[in-house]
Design a protein around this nucleic acid. Structure first.
Length: 198
DNA sequence: AGAGTGATCATG
DNA sequence: ATGATCACTCTC
């Protein structure tokens, strides 16, 4: 059995989870091949009060159903007619908050990622890029990261390196959200070259 | 800076 | 039913 983060890790406010996720490894098993990367960039979405969140104002739709369920599950949405983005559901069931996975530092299965991305660079630097690299789409929506072997999050080795410096910044691509767009709800590892933008 | 792309959503 | 929008990416 793979080592995985427990449910309790996710059952916290999304800002805490977004920050804590940095440095853990997202692992994808597909076609008997392993692809993985260290999470280096995330964003917190605060639910019904957050104008930038899909669940703002209590919206509950076919698309965002997963956000209303148990923490530790994957919320995948499709946008712009071609891109998928992946979130981890946080908080308590009924509080529809989540953390968007924005970038990985790729560590395993780079060849498969290059095949899927049709590129040698920017394999996992951006929410839709990392989904393409790891073959994540709507069919994985609702998947339980605490139990699945197809996709899960692995803690770093117990003898972990020195804690990394974390930067906060406004979230990307949510300018329509007014004051909520300016809140520092984006988290990334300072100096890491795989962060989607600085 | 502009185009691409179609599911999704709020309106009616 | 319909039209506007979109937690993005690529190319110029």
């Amino acid at each position: 059995m793979p080592r995985r983060l427990p449910r309790s890790f996710y059952r916290r406010d999304p800002q805490t989870v977004a920050r804590a996720l940095l440095g853990h490894r997202l692992v994808r098993q597909v076609d008997g091949r392993r692809c993985a990367g260290v999470i280096v960039e995330t964003e917190a979405y605060l639910g019904v009060r957050d104008k930038a969140a899909h669940t703002f104002g209590g919206r509950q739709t076919a698309r965002n159903q997963t956000m209303w369920g148990d923490c530790g599950c994957l919320y995948v949405y499709f946008t712009y007619g071609m891109h998928h983005c992946a979130n981890v559901v946080a908080g308590r069931a009924g509080d529809p908050v989540a953390v968007l996975l924005r970038a990985l530092d790729p560590t395993d299965g780079l060849d498969a990622m290059r095949d899927r991305r049709q590129r040698d660079v920017d394999l996992c630097s951006g929410p839709a890029r990392l989904c393409q690299a790891l073959a994540i789409d709507r069919s994985l929506d609702g998947l339980d990261l605490v139990k699945s072997t197809k996709l899960f999050i692995e803690p770093p080795p117990s003898r972990s390196p020195a804690p990394q410096r974390i930067v906060t910044a406004p979230r990307i691509g949510v300018q329509y959200a007014g004051a909520w767009a300016r809140k520092p709800l984006r988290y990334y590892v300072k100096g890491n070259p795989h962060v989607s933008r600085v």
